[in-house]
Every structure is written in structure tokens, then in C-alpha cells.
Amino acid sequence: MPNKIAEARQEAHKEAVKKADGRIECAPPGHDGFAYSCAIDMVQSQDGLFLTVRHPDGGFRRLLVTRDGRGVVAADGAEQTVVTALAPDLIEVAIGGARYRLPATVRQPAAKK
């Protein structure tokens, strides 16, 4: 039975992503629950990949994708980000009262010998 529930959740998630129209799941400051309401822009520069996450109210956050295993950091360095792996392909980023769920490649720790 648990497999049926997990499969149903996965299908519901896939449908929500299809209807999201290119948006990501977020909980902007002051919101408790997640919704597909934030837009995301990506710009590659000599300094790395920058993500601009735009809130429905016009606010935004700029994040820099790191290559050192941290995931992302605040592009301006003013506030600390807290990154939590949710799945092998999904992270949650918390910064300044906002939370974002972003696709990512989560590296698994190396097995100890």
C-alpha cells in the first residue's frame, strides 16, 4: 500500500510541475506553504551560474551556484543560505525568510571503506 501512496504523490507532483508554467516551488517571506509561484532566470557569466528567483510580489533573490558542494550561496554574500537536500535531484534553499525548491544534482557522500 505505501508504494501506491508514493506513486500517487509522484504523479500529483508531476502534474503540478506541468501546470507551473516554468515556475518553481517557493515560500516567499511571510508565506508558510509552498506554491509554484516564483519565476527563475539563469545567467551564465565568467563568475559562474547566477539564478534570479522572482517572487510574485516583485521581490527577488540572486543566488550563485557553487561547485564546492554547498549548492548555492547569496550572490551578494549579504545573507547566509541554508541548503537542504530533499531528494537526489532536489534541494531546498532558505534565505532571508524565503524558501525555494530547486532542481540540483545532490552528491552522495563517498562510502567509507
Results as ranks from 00 to 15, higher is better:
residue 100 Y to P: 15
residue 110 A to P: 05
residue 106 V to H: 02
residue 106 V to I: 05
residue 107 R to W: 10
residue 25 E to S: 06
residue 45 S to F: 06
residue 88 P to L: 02
residue 40 I to H: 00
residue 23 R to C: 10
residue 111 A to V: 10
residue 79 E to C: 08
residue 42 M to V: 15
residue 86 L to F: 04
residue 56 P to V: 14
residue 11 E to C: 14
residue 33 G to Y: 03
residue 29 P to R: 07
residue 66 T to R: 04
residue 106 V to C: 07
residue 92 E to M: 14
residue 108 Q to M: 15
residue 67 R to T: 14
residue 56 P to F: 02
residue 60 F to I: 07
residue 38 C to M: 01
residue 27 A to W: 00
residue 74 A to I: 13
residue 33 G to W: 11
residue 96 G to E: 02
residue 74 A to P: 07
residue 60 F to Q: 13
residue 57 D to G: 13
residue 8 A to G: 05
residue 18 K to R: 04
residue 108 Q to W: 03
residue 3 N to C: 08
residue 89 D to P: 04
residue 59 G to I: 06
residue 94 A to V: 07
residue 54 R to C: 11
residue 103 P to E: 07
residue 58 G to S: 07
residue 70 R to T: 10
residue 61 R to H: 10
residue 110 A to E: 13
residue 49 L to S: 13
residue 106 V to E: 03
residue 11 E to D: 08
residue 19 K to A: 14
residue 31 H to I: 14
residue 43 V to C: 09
residue 7 E to M: 12
residue 8 A to V: 08
residue 84 T to W: 03
residue 52 T to R: 14
residue 79 E to G: 07
residue 87 A to L: 08
residue 111 A to K: 02
residue 22 G to I: 04
residue 29 P to V: 12
residue 42 M to I: 13
residue 84 T to K: 15
residue 108 Q to S: 08
residue 28 P to E: 09
residue 91 I to A: 05
residue 44 Q to N: 09
residue 9 R to W: 05
residue 51 L to A: 03
residue 38 C to L: 07
residue 84 T to L: 09
residue 66 T to E: 10
residue 15 E to L: 15
residue 80 Q to H: 06
residue 32 D to Y: 05
residue 60 F to V: 06
residue 25 E to I: 07
residue 66 T to P: 03
residue 55 H to G: 11
residue 49 L to M: 11
residue 102 L to G: 04
residue 5 I to T: 10
residue 32 D to T: 12
residue 91 I to T: 04
residue 29 P to D: 03
residue 105 T to V: 13
residue 25 E to R: 06
residue 74 A to E: 09
residue 23 R to Q: 09
residue 103 P to H: 02
residue 54 R to S: 15
residue 100 Y to F: 14
residue 81 T to D: 02
residue 65 V to L: 13
residue 79 E to P: 11
residue 20 A to Y: 01
residue 49 L to P: 09
residue 82 V to L: 15
residue 91 I to D: 05
residue 16 A to S: 03
residue 49 L to Y: 00
residue 68 D to W: 00
residue 81 T to Y: 02
residue 55 H to R: 14
residue 24 I to S: 08
residue 62 R to N: 14
residue 86 L to C: 11
residue 77 G to F: 01
residue 73 V to A: 03
residue 24 I to N: 06
residue 69 G to H: 01
residue 56 P to D: 04
residue 108 Q to Y: 01
residue 104 A to G: 04
residue 108 Q to I: 11
residue 91 I to M: 10
residue 34 F to S: 08
residue 14 K to H: 11
residue 63 L to F: 05
residue 111 A to G: 04
residue 89 D to F: 01
